[in-house]
Nucleic acid binder design. Structure first.
Length: 438
DNA sequence: AAAGCGGGGCA
DNA sequence: TGCCCAGCTTT
């Protein structure tokens, strides 16, 4: 199995910031952040006025249903709006109420979440829904103290849901807000340092419109998404430029400041697509917590020193599912990037004489046909492997599976399928026992 | 306080 | 390729 990467802390490899800043828990006496009553009113007038004329229509802005808003905020965490839109629609269509979510199977929730990443968000949302049903009779609590306690609900989501659904005066602080505020006030505290959070929180709170907290929160995030963007900000069209210190000082490109992030390592891994005598593939389910928690994958893991991809594949399969298999085809490699590392995975087609699995690591397993595999929540990398496999299959095989999602992606991809089909690499899967190299 | 946690879009 | 994204949890 591909285990979570736990890196060593390398002093010096990271950008260790000298302590240049006071730790402001309030910014009332901050030298650069001067927000009097006049400024606050100007700020809100410019910002909210712009928002009314320029904002996008987004599905979760059409409702004040706290459950819908909560779902959207969970999905939007570290994820761009355009990515979330289709997932949001499918989620609330499948789980139209909090009670329906709480009564669902977590595997079905993960299936809807598949491809969105950060799967603990789905698990926490599901667990929180069950808690709300159990503790509050299915009514989402509308106080900070009670809502903020729920799993997966941090300061941002609590402020967002309570302000958007109930118009309570809590200021949101997300990546957009920090970028906007850092530029407007030339705030030097790095936005990706934990110690800077109280500064941005304090500024946002002092600026917040108590009259329209929901509009204010939407507007400042919308400004960050549409005008005050990370690259090429549209200062010439910005409604805040007359209030913006970095615009006046031509220092916009220097804000926000951030501490250097570590470059991610690349690991060579080896994965086996193991077929049994019925031509079904072995998939295993990962533990519920941690990387890709609860998702299904083909067995495999890191290639160790002095190992070939082939021997690593055989070892991982022996370790994880205690099967002795025979490699019949090298399908090639796929690449994939996670948060803290990248992988280059060698993918092998293998056969097992026995289907008797003994798990060590994974928490469940199934032998499935390719038609069935799309019923399980799979990581993106596993989808790439399925697509790689199909790209090596003869055309009749692919046509039999033309409804499979991976086939669609394959066809929309490099278009290499026809090439590989004629490369002499294919294996027959038309119902025969075993696999013959042509 | 720092690290873990996906995947897509973009210059 | 590296950076960034409507962050939260765990250690």
């Amino acid at each position: 199995m591909l285990r979570n990467f736990r890196g060593r802390s390398e002093a010096g490899a990271r950008g260790e910031y000298p302590k240049l800043f006071r730790n402001y828990t309030d910014t009332a006496d901050h030298p650069k952040i001067m927000v009097n009553e006049n400024f606050q009113k100007d700020f809100c007038r410019h910002l909210i006025g712009w928002y009314h004329s320029a904002h996008r229509t987004l599905p979760w802005r059409e409702t004040r249903n706290p459950y819908f808003i909560w779902v959207s905020e969970a999905m939007l965490q570290q994820t761009q709006v355009q990515t979330v839109i289709p997932y949001y629609g499918r989620f609330i269509e499948t789980f139209p109420t909090l009670i329906r979510l709480a009564d669902a199977d977590i595997q079905d929730v993960l299936k809807i979440w598949e491809g969105l990443g950060y799967y603990s968000r789905a698990r926490h949302l599901y667990e929180a829904a069950r808690i709300v049903c159990r503790t509050y009779g299915g009514t989402i609590p509308d106080t900070w103290a009670s809502f903020r306690k729920l799993p997966g609900v941090g300061d941002y989501i609590a402020a967002a849901v309570l302000s958007f659904a109930f118009r309570q005066p809590h200021a949101v602080v997300d990546g957009n807000v920090k970028r906007v505020l850092a530029r407007i006030f030339e705030i030097d505290e790095p936005v990706n340092q934990l110690s800077a959070k109280p500064v941005y929180q304090s500024v946002a709170k002092r600026l917040l419109s108590l009259h329209e907290p929901d509009m204010f929160n939407q507007a400042v995030m919308e400004l960050g998404a549409l005008i005050c963007t990370p690259k090429n900000p549209g200062c010439e069209n910005c409604p805040m430029s007359s209030l913006c210190r970095s615009f006046q000082n031509r220092s916009v490109s220097q804000y926000p400041k951030r501490v250097e992030s570590r470059s991610v390592p690349t690991y060579a891994v080896s994965v086996g697509m193991v077929q049994n005598a019925q031509n079904r593939f072995l998939i295993t389910r990962r533990a519920a917590s941690g990387l890709l928690g609860g998702l299904w994958e083909f067995p495999g893991g890191k290639i160790q020193l002095n190992e070939t991809p082939e021997t690593a594949c055989l070892r991982e399969i022996r370790e994880e599912v205690n099967l002795k298999v025979r490699i019949v085809e090298n399908l090639g490699t796929i690449r994939h990037a996670y948060t803290h590392f990248r992988i280059i995975a060698s993918v092998f087609l293998a056969t097992a004489d026995s289907s008797e699995v003994v798990l060590n690591g994974p928490v469940d397993y199934q032998w499935v046909s390719l038609d069935q595999i799309s019923q399980y929540p799979l990581p993106k990398a596993t989808h790439k492997m399925v697509a790689l496999f199909l790209s090596k299959m003869p055309i009749p095989y692919v046509i039999r599976h033309e409804n499979h999602m991976a086939v669609q992606k394959c066809r929309n991809g490099s278009g290499s399928r026809a090439d590989t089909v004629h490369s002499g690499q294919f294996v027959s899967h038309q119902g025969g026992q075993g696999h013959q190299r042509r």
